[in-house]
Write a protein that binds this DNA or RNA. Structure first.
Length: 462
RNA sequence: GGAUAGGUGGCAGAGCGGUCAUGCGUGGGACUGCAGAUCCCAUCUAAUAGGGUUCAACUCCCUACCUAUCCUCCA
């Protein structure tokens, strides 16, 4: 498998051992506000990525941090007149709710910064002892000059940088970054050898990854906007402590979501929240839309992007359900079809979900054209392929395998079939519309009727 | 200013030195009690600009221009 690695600035072979657990860390959110499509893009991508690795036989431990102490959280708490943890808890819960709606469920463990203060303090002590960090009247700062590789991930020549805009605090160098911020009145704090205060951002992640993964792990991911300074700062901290030549073997970064060619962000007020989208579209639509692009390219968000995704998701899901209904109890999930191997090779090249989807749609069209002539083996191939894609991409609408529901629906459909046979259409249509109201979507094909839970269009939040 | 990624038809977006993918959209048709779904046909004759290499360039090279991201917090 090959993937674009930020450190190498090229596609590289992703050589992951099969004989041990792969350690993947992806930067989680700062829980300070509602979550938008940009967050969705990154977390959906890594969800699909990790699920794909697992489906191809790797054991993966997927770790994500939650930044639950930070200036913006404190600001918001102050403006609402509540403790900081009221805010962080509220948005942590919201984050988990949203991820669950998006079918992002591959993370093994969420590590909260405030649960790792001891590890953070230990790291700061080492940095000071090694002369890599210094204490001032308002904090402890990492001395960027002492770490020659600072900025290497980002690939910048330090001489060409724009002057740093961050002149806050009493730093020696504007690019030095805080690992400990000393208490200002009214702020939450923890005790430390350098007085009361709270951790800086970058060291939260190194304290967490060091604890669970050690000084070097396999894959570090996150949004493009975190490359500098955040990830370079993590590298500087951890390598200063460990003495190793690297922090992670592979660096994978997702591109930004744009709106009218500008980055979606809080400050530009051009963001669309995930919750808002899920009022008109399903999670599967959003997953398809966001995965349907090179993961490292920026992606322009628009309504038509979602509409197109919904249309494709609908086509794929409908065929899947038809195949499943035709197969009945002959359905058998097998991964040894050639077609799966051939589509697998597309993903193997830089996690090309877009290429995968393109070919899936092509196949769906071909199969649709000959659906009535397909035998059980063909149908099983369709069923298996789409189920396999869904196992990591998460793009199929849910049907129903509930036997009790099945029995009831089939009973109603049989009655309806007889009504249609004697042209009692009014009653037949009434059954159809009542079923639809209950979330059972039905579709007549000649004398047969296909049905499934969830209509092709619709939303996950009402 | 620097680094990175790009500039392809109405939109999204591949590949390839020489037969202009594919999807969405749009138009027409078939099927259907209706709805939905599906199929068939058609549609667009595209490449930021200017040079160069070549028998031949959207595809290679050069130049210019343009866009996005980062260089403060940010997924």
């Amino acid at each position: 498998m090959r993937i674009y690695d930020t450190m190498a600035r090229a596609k590289v072979a992703l050589d992951l051992p099969q004989d041990r657990v792969i350690r993947v860390f992806v930067c989680g959110p700062t829980v300070q506000d509602n979550f938008h499509i940009g967050h969705a893009r990154t977390y959906i991508f890594f969800d699909a990525f990790v699920k794909y690795l697992r489906s191809s036989g790797h054991r993966v431990f997927y770790l994500q941090n939650i930044t639950d102490i930070d200036d913006k959280i404190i600001d918001r708490a102050n403006s609402e007149g509540v403790r900081f943890d009221v805010i962080s808890r509220r948005f942590t819960n919201e984050f988990h709710d949203i991820m669950s709606l998006l079918r992002v469920d591959s993370v093994n463990f969420f590590a909260h910064a405030t649960d790792h203060i001891a590890e953070i303090l230990a790291q700061i002590s080492i940095l000071i002892r090694k002369g890599m960090a210094y204490e001032t009247e308002d904090g402890v700062y990492f001395d960027v000059e002492k770490f020659p590789d600072y900025g290497k991930l980002w690939g910048q020549n330090p001489d060409t940088l724009l002057p740093s805009a961050d002149t806050s605090g009493s730093k020696r160098n504007p690019r030095d970054f805080a690992v400990w911020k000393k208490l200002k009145p009214g702020e939450p704090y923890w005790d430390s050898p350098w007085g009361r205060g709270r951790p800086g951002w970058h060291i939260e992640d190194t304290a967490i990854t060091d604890r669970y993964f050690g000084p070097v792990y396999d894959i570090h991911g996150g949004g493009m906007d975190l490359i500098f300074p955040h990830h370079d700062a993590e590298i500087a901290i951890e390598r200063s402590i460990s003495g190793k030549d690297r922090l992670a073997d592979y660096w994978i970064h997702t591109g930004m979501i744009n709106v009218n060619d500008e980055k979606m962000s809080k400050s530009l007020k051009n963001f669309v929240t995930i919750r808002e989208v899920l009022k008109s579209y399903r999670a599967e639509d959003l997953r398809f839309a966001l995965l349907n692009a090179n993961f490292s390219s920026s992606l322009n968000y628009s309504e038509s992007l979602l509409q197109e995704a919904r249309r494709n998701v609908s086509q794929i899901s409908i065929l899947y359900n038809k195949a499943l209904l035709k197969l009945g109890d002959r359905a058998e999930y097998r991964k040894d079809y050639d077609i799966i191997a051939s589509l697998d090779s597309i993903i193997q090249d830089n996690m090309d979900f877009r290429g995968l989807f393109r070919d899936v749609i092509r196949l769906v069209n071909t199969w649709n054209a000959s659906l009535d002539n397909l035998g059980a083996d063909d149908l099983n191939q369709i069923y298996s392929l789409l189920k396999w894609v869904d196992s990591f991409a998460g793009i199929l609408r849910r049907g129903s395998s509930d036997i009790t529901v099945s029995g009831t629906v089939n009973l109603l459909l049989n009655i309806r079939k007889e009504l249609r046979a004697i042209k009692q259409y009014q009653l037949a249509d009434s059954i159809r519309s009542r079923l639809l109201e209950m979330g059972v979507y039905i579709e007549d094909n000649g004398s047969d009727t296909a049905w499934w839970i969830n209509s092709p269009d619709g939303a996950d939040i009402s």
